[in-house]
């Protein structure tokens, strides 16, 4: 086959899908772990520490992700931190998404309710045990649907890394339709479909959890 969907083009595009999925998975794992820690700190109100974390989280949450990507890739080298496009994307996305995850986890922790804490403390558990065995598991369960929504955003946002020439799906589609303007519409349909399939499956998963948790 030739044209927009020649074998080499398809292979090239699929490699981009691989990069998109790869960046997404790594960023999801890092931001989930870091975000959970931040969320617990926000929830627990550690003197001074929580206020500092709150300030950092609020600042990062309210900036465009694109700015953070640019900053990571172009400005951090001035501080001696040189990252290639892939690591810079993973770093920027993990930092940004961790602040989003932190808010979700904090909300989940708050939604569990004081009765659970009081119950656990009255049975003689200490604060850490109460958090680890009683509150956190319930909070995580409730956080699953909003977390999945957040990770859908993350997958979509990987496309921004086109700006620092990360060869992911969006970037490669542009390379392909750069060969011939006739490829434009087929390429847009193809990548829209690919993103949609990945994200819609995730959103179905979120809905499934939502129903099961009610």
């Amino acid at each position: 086959m030739s044209g927009a969907f020649s074998t080499s083009n398809v292979q090239y595009l699929l490699k981009g899908l691989g990069v998109t999925v790869g960046v997404s998975i790594i960023s999801i794992i890092i931001s989930f772990i870091a975000g959970s820690v931040l969320g617990i700190i926000l929830y627990e109100k550690v003197p001074y520490f929580t206020k500092t974390v709150r300030l950092i989280v609020n600042t990062i949450r309210n900036l465009p992700l694109l700015l953070i990507i640019f900053f990571t890739y172009f400005a951090l080298p001035k501080l001696g931190v040189e990252l290639n496009a892939f690591s810079a994307t993973v770093f920027a996305m993990s930092v940004f998404e961790a602040t989003m995850v932190a808010e979700i986890i904090r909300g989940g922790l708050l939604s569990v309710g004081i009765g659970q804490t009081e119950g656990a403390l009255s049975t003689g558990m200490n604060k850490v045990q109460t958090l680890w065995y009683i509150i956190l598991p319930q909070a995580l369960k409730r956080s699953i649907p909003p977390l999945i929504s957040q990770f859908i955003s993350l997958v979509k946002d990987t496309s921004l890394a086109t700006a620092i020439v990360l060869p992911e799906l969006m970037f490669r589609s542009q390379v392909i339709y750069g060969q011939n303007p006739k490829y434009m519409v087929p390429m847009f349909i193809t990548i829209a479909a690919l993103y949609f399939v990945v994200n819609y499956s995730l959103s179905l998963l979120a809905k499934w959890f939502d129903k099961r948790l009610v």
Partner: peptide, 22 residues
Amino acid sequence: VEFFRNIPLLVITMFFYVVVSS
């Protein structure tokens, strides 16, 4: 709603910039 929620903003924007604006 499902269509626009599940594809990147950049794809929508580039579509208008590259395809529609031609």
